[in-house]
Amino acid sequence: MLNWSPLGKLFFVLVLLIIGLLCDSIVVPLITFTIGLALMAYSTNFRVPLILALAIAEAIVIMVLGSGMISIMGDPNVPALFEGKFLWITIHMTDASFQKAWVIFFRAIAGVTLMLSFATSTPIPHLAHALRSIKCPVEICELIVLIYRYSFLLLERFLVMIDAAQCRLGYNGTVNAIRTYGGAMAGTFIFSMELAEKSEASLACRNYQGYFPIFHTPSPFSWKWLAAGLGLCIVLYLINIYTMGWIDMVSVFAPLLGW
């Protein structure tokens, strides 16, 4: 997937995300989730890095909690499946809010797999190169690459300073901990600024013109991507119309929850 057109992949992902939003059938996000998972598996050979897996797991926890929150905020004028009060939160779960929460949950999961399939197959310089080709301001393209590079620079410096502070018992007490973090952040920022100035000089020595060259240029955007994206969009919309109401999550959970 690395050599596929970055703009094509981006277009494809965006089309699937948008069509997922426009459809109310749960079947559509399930299909987009399957496509995203398949693409992610293809681009990583199913060797998802542990840190990425943890990020996905954390995102899923947030989605579960968020969908749960939406499910309990139903229309107050409609009879509730379940109502009550938990601490200060008023719970009014209706048929529509419960179904909507599930649709949102599946959309979110599908979104994560689609976006990660793009991310795992597209280096940031490829993305910047693709954006330049569609006349995105050069300053923005340059900043995208620089921010990405400097994030690692900052993170590395920050972790070194945090470790150094740990060795000096810098986290002994809340005030000390906050002071240490403040110092580490300022130190990281200032040190990285000096390093960035040096790196700017070194880039200038290599004739840097605000653009990082790519030696294996990925394919450009072609009509095939446009056709694939729009074709899939139409198919998914038809599936949405045909499968509307096929999966009713209230009926699925009714025996379990006694509704």
């Binding site: 954390e58 989605m63 909690l65 939406i70 340059e142 900043l143 400097y150 900052l154 600024m193």
Partner: peptide, 26 residues
């Protein structure tokens, strides 16, 4: 230029420290 890019990287670093919050967001 470097300062602007570093400010962006700084936002990325700081805002990536997320905590789940029971609201569909974090």
């Amino acid at each position: 230029k470097m300062m602007v890019a570093l400010s962006g990287a700084f936002i990325f670093l700081i805002s990536s420290l997320k905590l789940p919050s029971v609201t569909g967001s974090c």
